[in-house]
Amino acid sequence: MVTRSDILLANGVGVIMSDSFYSVDFAFSFPVPATVISNEDRVKVLNYIRTTENPTATILVAQGWKDVVAASVVSFSSRGPNPITPDILKPDITAPGVDILAAWSPVAPPSIDYKDTRSLNFNIISGTSMSCPHTSAAAAYVKAGHPNWSPAAI
C-alpha cells in the first residue's frame, strides 16, 4: 500500500485514490492535493495513463452533493448497547467526528507526514476527540433549556 510519505519521496505533487483503497467514512489531511474517485473512474484513469504518452491530471475544487441517505455511525465510532447490561440504553450522543473543522496548533504539521512543513491555524480531521467540544456545547445548550433532564434525555 502506498503511504502519504511515499508520495513525497517520489516527488509527487498530488494523489488520486479509488474508494476501495481509501475509506470514505473519515478523512485525512494530505501533504499534497488529493482526491478519491470511484472504482469505475479508476479504470478510466488507468486506461488513460496506459494509452497516453504524457498523461496529466488536474485536481479541481470539489463540488458538493446532497446525501439523502440516513445518517450512519462511522467505522471508528463506538456503538451501543451497553456491553454489560444490554437492556440499558447508553446515554451517549452519536458524534463520530467526521471531517470536523477545528483550531489547530500552527507548530504541528497538518498531516501525519513529518516532512509536511505547512502551518495552519485550522484543520479538518476526523476523530471523536474532534467532535467532543462541539457535542458538549450542544448538550450544554439543551441542558440550559431543560435543567432537570438527565444525560439520557439530553
Rank of each mutant, 00 (worst) to 15 (best):
M1H: 11
T3P: 05
T3L: 08
S5M: 07
L8P: 03
N11R: 03
G12K: 05
G12A: 05
V13E: 15
V13R: 08
V15D: 07
S18A: 08
S20N: 12
S23A: 14
S29K: 13
P31C: 06
P31Y: 14
V36M: 03
N39R: 02
R42W: 15
V43G: 10
V43A: 08
V45H: 02
R50G: 05
T52P: 02
T52W: 01
N54F: 10
A57M: 10
A57S: 08
I59H: 03
L60E: 13
A62Y: 07
A62R: 04
K66N: 11
D67I: 01
V69T: 09
A70V: 09
A71Q: 12
S72Y: 05
S72C: 05
V74L: 05
S75F: 12
S77L: 07
N82P: 10
K90Y: 04
P91E: 04
D92L: 08
I93C: 09
T94A: 06
P96D: 12
G97T: 07
L101H: 06
A102W: 02
A103Y: 03
P106C: 05
P109V: 02
P109Y: 07
P109T: 05
P110T: 13
I112M: 03
I112V: 09
D113N: 09
D113E: 07
N121A: 00
N121I: 00
N123P: 00
I125T: 07
S126Q: 04
G127W: 07
S129V: 06
M130Q: 12
T135L: 12
A140Y: 13
Y141P: 00
A144H: 02
G145Q: 15
S150Y: 00
